[in-house]
Design a protein around this nucleic acid. Sequence first.
DNA 1: GTGAAAGCGCTAACAT
DNA 2: ATGTTAGCGCTTTCAC
Lengths: 338, 338
Amino acid sequence: MKKITLKDIAKYFDVSISTVSKAVNDSHEISKDLKQRIQEYAKEQHYKPNKLALNLLNRSTKTIGVIVPNILNYFFVQVLYGIEKVANENGYNIISCISNESYEKESKTLEFLDSGTVDGLIISLAEETQVKERVEGLQEIAENQIPLVLFDRVSDLIACDKVIVDDFEAGYKTTKYFFNIGCKNVAFVSPIGKSSVGKLRHEGYKKALEEAGRPYDEKLVVNFTAKDDLDLIMSFLLNYKPIDGILGLDEITAVKILHIVKSRGYNVPNDVSIVGFTNGQLSQYVTPSLTMVSQHGKFIGEKAAELLIKRIQHPDRPFETKMVKTSLLVRDSTKKLQ
Amino acid sequence: MKKITLKDIAKYFDVSISTVSKAVNDSHEISKDLKQRIQEYAKEQHYKPNKLALNLLNRSTKTIGVIVPNILNYFFVQVLYGIEKVANENGYNIISCISNESYEKESKTLEFLDSGTVDGLIISLAEETQVKERVEGLQEIAENQIPLVLFDRVSDLIACDKVIVDDFEAGYKTTKYFFNIGCKNVAFVSPIGKSSVGKLRHEGYKKALEEAGRPYDEKLVVNFTAKDDLDLIMSFLLNYKPIDGILGLDEITAVKILHIVKSRGYNVPNDVSIVGFTNGQLSQYVTPSLTMVSQHGKFIGEKAAELLIKRIQHPDRPFETKMVKTSLLVRDSTKKLQ
DNA sequence: GTGAAAGCGCTAACAT
DNA sequence: ATGTTAGCGCTTTCAC
């Protein structure tokens, strides 16, 4: 049961550890015969070099750590796929962790990953971290320790490579789209009101209103959290004004909104048009299928991994920020363009 | 930028490494004054003990590795949560990896996790691994190396602790339920036909047919893979016989089936009743909401983590297999019981 | 062809 | 109160 080491093998053959090391690594320095016997025995005993020792020796683990806030959000799953793809292509493994939007969980994970376990880090900030701007830990890491790439939920206070979505434009264009299809009262419903991403989309929403010469009505802007009763909130919203457009800031929110709106007797899209964010699995299979803003998660993941690997190889490059544009996938939850 | 070590600090203060070690660990052996100066300097320089070195020393990493086949399946996400909960409660971190149903990916991940990186492993087999019965690697690991718990997709060939779902009973009871609500022709649609889980449910399905005195019609049993066109397959199925009940073996399959059946003009549940597996996010928000078999993923995860931790502490306990029962969550995609 | 020694970063037992 | 030594498992000079 106990793991076998070079030392054990050396004792068994009554040779030195370094001889065994060379033998298992198939060095030409060792005689064919001894080499073969050692290799056979090693296989028999299931010898595996201890990675910990090797990593310590190489001061590298060929592993990159990833922290995402929420694995139930399909966007992050897509990003993960993208990261993994590029990482594997470059001989890196990834270890993915979930912060669950919690600052504490994020810090603990960071503590774990930092200090030798990984060669680099790719992170999207937990909402709590963004809200409280508690980024000292990450600043330190970025400045003094290991290569770091931030994506999607980033912070200006941290100097590092970043991959971000053009969320301002996304909010702006989507709102404009509502107007184009004839909507008058467009609500903005956000489960991530306090994250950078939510704020930027909100700014875009405001700009579109302004440009269209429509008043900004803060009652049409709803921020809610997991604890809130979305049903109740939507009820207020729908009774407040004849809403005919709703923008939901993630996929599950859009799906829930659709469900609630339908169950209150509205027709989607004739009475109310709905657009969500993230082109995931749910949105295509609900009825009607949802029009969504795709952030190209996989692409973002690929870019983030590329940036990180470049940084690992050239620690002194200037920092880069990559901006990724969104696309609107028009389906059946929005009225047709005339 | 370079990481600072005890050695560096020792040099700076012109003391020995062990003195520094004791100082940063707040040992009483060190004089107040020196201790304080060292600690200050360490903080200033962002000293962090190298985990690799510590783990090597302790021959333990307080980390457990998890490999799941598919992160898009909500069941596995739930299991992950359960594992993480118990792991954290016991001072363990988890690192979760995805095999993507591929044997090769699973092996590579295993290779990485094995050999010192984790103290134990929790795995649900990739379908390819189950189909081909390529479990030698895992056998070795279980027998000679690190504690292993298998869940859901297990193999009889591997001697270790296991947590399994009573899939036979689930298939049996669910099929019986279809009969109870008056269905005559119940189809069985599986994206995991070759996994142990799919097979057991299928056995249960057969037993229910038998008990009800109905003939087994293999044309009503459909196995498909990601490459197949489910639309086409369902089309054949629906034209073949007046199907009035469909059992889909995972959540996304059930949702897709619902979508296809509806779009062909059938009423759900009046014409066709549908039941799926896994109580996830999608099934409640489609229309009509889907009746689902819950496997209690989180509970399974908790049990798996408990078993693993017990095994780590007592390597010589006899192996255990925990069987978890499913429950049927009746919603609107099935006809009501009379 | 084989082995001794040093070292990766750290701790702990044992001097001094 | 501080330092020395040994060792975790491994590789890599450098001797022999």
